[in-house]
Measured scan of single mutants.
Amino acid sequence: KELVLVLYDYQEKSPREVTVKKGDILTLLNSTNKDAWKVEVDDRQGFIPAAYLKKL
């Protein structure tokens, strides 16, 4: 599985998104959309803007 590093805090703005903190390391589920990547956070799945993430 692929991991990503969170570069900036992000507060979810819709039910399809998830809230993350800078420095979190998350499982990347889908990065086919260049604008928003799907990740898993504490058994929740949701989207975060790709600009907030860096592949490890």
Rank of each mutant, 00 (worst) to 15 (best):
Lys34Ser: 12
Phe47Asp: 08
Glu12Thr: 11
Ile48Glu: 03
Asp42Arg: 11
Lys34Glu: 12
Pro49Glu: 04
Tyr8Leu: 10
Ser14Thr: 13
Val4Arg: 01
Trp37Asp: 00
Glu2Gln: 14
Tyr8His: 12
Val18Glu: 01
Asp43Leu: 09
Val6Gly: 00
Thr27Ala: 09
Thr32Val: 10
Lys34Ile: 11
Glu17Gly: 15
Lys21Glu: 04
Lys21His: 10
Val39Cys: 06
Tyr52Arg: 03
Thr19Asp: 04
Asn33Ser: 11
Lys1Tyr: 13
Gly23Glu: 02
Val4Pro: 01
Ile48Gln: 02
Ala51Glu: 13
Leu26Pro: 02
Leu5Arg: 06
Leu28Ser: 01
Gln11Thr: 14
Asp42Pro: 05
Asp9Met: 02
Val4Leu: 03
Leu56Gly: 01
Val20Arg: 00
Asp24Phe: 06
Arg16Asp: 15
Val4Thr: 02
Leu3Val: 07
Glu17Ser: 08
Leu3Pro: 02
Asp43Tyr: 09
Lys34Gln: 11
Glu12Lys: 14
Leu5Trp: 05
Ile25Thr: 04
Leu29Asp: 00
Glu40Asp: 04
Asn30Met: 08
Val20Asp: 01
Gln11Lys: 13
Lys55Val: 12
Gly46Ile: 15
Tyr8Cys: 15
Pro15Ser: 12
Pro15Arg: 08
Asp24Ala: 11
Gly46Lys: 05
Pro15Cys: 10
Val4Gly: 03
Trp37Thr: 01
Ser14Asp: 12
Arg44Gln: 07
Phe47Ala: 04
Ser14Ile: 06
Asn30Cys: 13
Trp37Ser: 00
Leu5Cys: 12
Thr19Ser: 14
Asp42Ala: 14
Lys21Gly: 03
Ile48His: 02
Lys21Phe: 10
Glu2Tyr: 11
Glu2Phe: 12
Ile48Met: 11
Phe47Val: 08
Leu3Cys: 13
Val41Cys: 09
Thr19His: 05
Lys21Pro: 01
Val41Met: 09
Leu29Gly: 01
Ala50Gly: 07
Leu26Gln: 01
Thr27Arg: 13
Tyr52Trp: 07
Asp43Ile: 05
Asp42Val: 08
Gly46Ala: 12
Val39Asp: 00
Val4Glu: 01
Gly46Asn: 04
Ala51Asn: 12
Glu12Val: 10
Lys13Ser: 10
Leu28Ala: 02
Glu12Arg: 14
Leu53Cys: 12
Lys54Cys: 15
Lys55Leu: 13
Lys21Asn: 07
Pro15Trp: 08
Val4Gln: 00
Pro15Leu: 09
Val6Tyr: 00
Trp37Pro: 00
Tyr52Val: 13
Ala50Ser: 14
Leu53Met: 04
Val41Phe: 10
Asp35Lys: 13
Lys54Ile: 13
Asp24His: 06
Tyr10Asp: 01
Val39Trp: 02
Leu3His: 08
Val39Tyr: 02
Pro15Asn: 10
Ile48Asp: 03
Lys22His: 05
Ala36Cys: 15
Gly23Ser: 01
Leu28Met: 03
Glu2Cys: 15
Tyr52Pro: 03
Lys38Arg: 12
Leu28Asn: 00
Tyr10Thr: 00
Lys38Ile: 15
Leu28Trp: 02
Gln11Ser: 12
Lys21Met: 08
Lys54Pro: 04
Gly23Ala: 02
Tyr52Glu: 03
Gln11Ile: 14
Arg44His: 07
Leu3Ile: 08
Lys54Tyr: 12
Ser31Gln: 09
Gly23Pro: 01
Gly46Val: 15
Gln45Glu: 12
Glu17Thr: 06
Val39Phe: 03
Ser14Gln: 09
Ser14Arg: 08
Asn33Thr: 07
Lys21Trp: 08
Asp43Val: 06
Lys34Arg: 11
Val20Lys: 01
Val18Gly: 02
Glu12His: 08
Leu29Trp: 04
Gln45Val: 15
Pro15Ile: 08
Leu26Thr: 01
Gln45Trp: 12
Lys55Thr: 07
Trp37Ile: 02
Lys22Trp: 04
Val6His: 00
Lys38Leu: 15
Thr19Phe: 05
Glu40Ser: 10
Val20Ser: 03
Asp9Pro: 05
Glu12Leu: 14
Lys1Cys: 14
Ala36Tyr: 15
